[in-house]
């Protein structure tokens, strides 16, 4: 939903970042307002996953230039946990398995960290169970997964549902979903996408990072950005995704080549 008068939630200006000595992001510009759904597409290695990790504060990446403002504050100044508490959410491409840590306990501790930041009261075990059982329906997840260790032995689809469940509990303002569609069969994709659609509102925004058009058949983006060589090469509406689907990424490579020569 594009509204010119909506608040700007995230403003990325000329963002540059590297991992070890390798520059990956080479000047990304992107502004996201409340109510909008953005999709970032691109080949493997174009920098789109790096963008999501830099925004969430992964310690392996070093920002070498540019700025990111989140609701007016300097995002890059904040620890990863502060970003999360303030409403930035990253849905992982590969959710991490944590043996021995109960999924339910983990969800409760993280939900309470976010609630405290919003000035809401902490939920005790019982109140939280009520909330989590209600939110489970968003992703049609079996409550048995609450009793297991975080993501341990979950199938690919179960892990992604667990990510969207966390998103439903944390109630983020900006949700970045990194290849949430990868490894999902069509039914799981519909459930996960249904959850994302259900959670989208005029007050929050979603940034979908994806490889394929098929996710965008079920979640309609307001903007599609094409990333290559660590930059956003082109921005358009949802028709840009269809064009990519039709023409492939070759023309992107050609544009990038022209740009890098210049």
């Amino acid at each position: 939903m594009i509204r010119p008068e909506a608040d700007t939630l995230l403003e990325i200006v000329d963002l540059q970042a590297r991992v070890e000595d390798k520059p990956i992001l080479k000047g990304v510009n992107l502004t996201i307002k409340a109510g909008e759904i953005h999709a970032v597409m691109g080949r493997n290695g174009s920098g789109k996953s790096t963008l999501s990790k830099v925004l969430a504060g992964h310690p392996a990446y070093t920002v070498t230039g540019g700025s990111v403002r989140y609701r007016g504050a300097d995002l890059l100044d904040l620890e990863p946990e502060q970003r999360a508490r303030l409403g930035l959410f990253l849905g992982f491409q590969y959710p991490v398995e944590i043996p021995g840590v109960s999924n339910l306990e983990f969800l409760r501790v993280s939900t309470n960290a976010r609630r405290m930041e919003k000035g809401e009261e902490e939920l005790d075990t019982f109140a939280f169970e009520d909330l989590v059982r209600e939110r489970l329906q968003v992703v049609q997840m079996d409550p048995a997964f609450l009793e297991r260790s975080v993501n341990e032995g979950f199938s690919g689809g179960e892990k992604k549902r667990n990510e969207i469940l966390q998103m439903a509990l944390l109630d983020p303002l900006v949700a970045i979903l990194d290849e949430t569609d990868s490894g999902l069969d069509i039914d799981a994709l519909r459930i996960v996408a249904g959850g994302v659609n259900h959670l989208a509102s005029p007050d929050n925004a979603t940034l979908l990072i994806t490889h394929y058009q098929r996710l965008l058949d079920v979640i309609t983006p307001d903007y599609v950005h094409v990333m290559a060589g660590g930059r956003i090469l082109r921005t358009g509406g949802k028709e840009l995704a269809l064009e990519l689907e039709d023409r492939g990424y070759d023309w992107v490579d050609q544009e990038l080549a022209v740009l890098e020569v210049a």
Binding site: A56, E79, P80, E81, A84, I98, P99, V109, A113, E117
Partner: peptide, 23 residues
Amino acid sequence: FYLQSRGLSAAVAAGLLKRGFCE
């Protein structure tokens, strides 16, 4: 990082991982 990205401080995250290891 996964735990921190869900709002847990580094110390709490480390404690939870230690607990998981022991449990």
